[in-house]
């Protein structure tokens, strides 16, 4: 009688673990427990990347399918959030929309950093206090994808620079300079939005 058919050492041990482990620590449950708390935020991030709800659903489905398939390669104790966001981002980059978006991004995003202007009480900061968020959403939408994603990871997902570095596969120094440029670009976008509203 064949109980089990498998080749890999890891697979055999995995099966042994599977039958010995209590129900609450079954690998499939572990994946669900780890992955589902990120579902809403992953969907939100996917919508911001794709700018299309149907595409975002497809992207999230693809992400979960790939993550489940590759879950055995995930190292327990390491950062699951960075791992699954990286999968989603890679899936996006290879999608038609992702290739199109990245193809239009200037290549010199990581040039020398310029000094940021002092930001005090400016028209856009006043507008920020009074606006309903729509103006910021429009400014975010118009940012290049590299700026939009890093701002969302930092401000919305509240990831540390280290997590962002792992998710985007870029060095910490690049995280800081890209964030700085993204913020500057957003301020520029807000100024334009403000000017439009004034006209």
């Amino acid at each position: 009688m064949v109980f089990f058919v498998g080749y890999g050492n890891k697979t055999l041990v995995g099966w042994f673990t599977l039958v010995c482990m209590p129900e609450e620590s079954l690998p499939s449950e572990s994946f669900e427990q780890l992955a589902m708390p990120h579902f809403e935020r992953l969907y939100n991030f996917a919508c911001w990347l794709t700018q299309d709800r149907q595409e975002a659903e497809d992207l999230v489905q693809e992400t979960y399918a790939k993550a489940l398939k590759g879950f055995s390669s995930f190292q327990p104790g390491t950062n699951f959030r960075a791992w699954i966001y990286k999968i989603l981002r890679n899936a996006f980059l290879t999608s038609r929309t992702g290739l199109k978006a990245t193809a239009t991004v200037p290549l010199d995003l990581e040039g020398e950093e310029e000094a940021l202007p002092v930001v005090k009480e400016t028209p856009e900061s006043i507008l920020l206090q009074r606006s309903d968020g729509q103006i910021v959403q429009q400014a975010l939408e118009q940012l290049p994808i590299a700026y939009r994603e890093i701002l969302l990871l930092c401000e919305v997902e509240e990831m540390s620079y280290q997590e962002i570095s792992a998710t985007l596969a870029i060095p910490m120094g690049t995280v800081m300079s890209r964030l700085s440029r993204a913020r500057k670009a957003l301020r520029g976008g807000l100024q334009q939005q403000f000017a439009k509203r004034m006209n």
């Binding site: 659903e57 920020l128 401000e155 919305v156």
Partner: peptide, 19 residues
């Protein structure tokens, strides 16, 4: 203060889509 306001505005605006 201005930068904190900006951070908060992005936080609010960024949580836009729900499945």
């Amino acid at each position: 203060l201005a930068r904190v306001q900006m951070k908060r505005a992005i936080q609010v605006a960024g949580k836009r889509y729900a499945p």
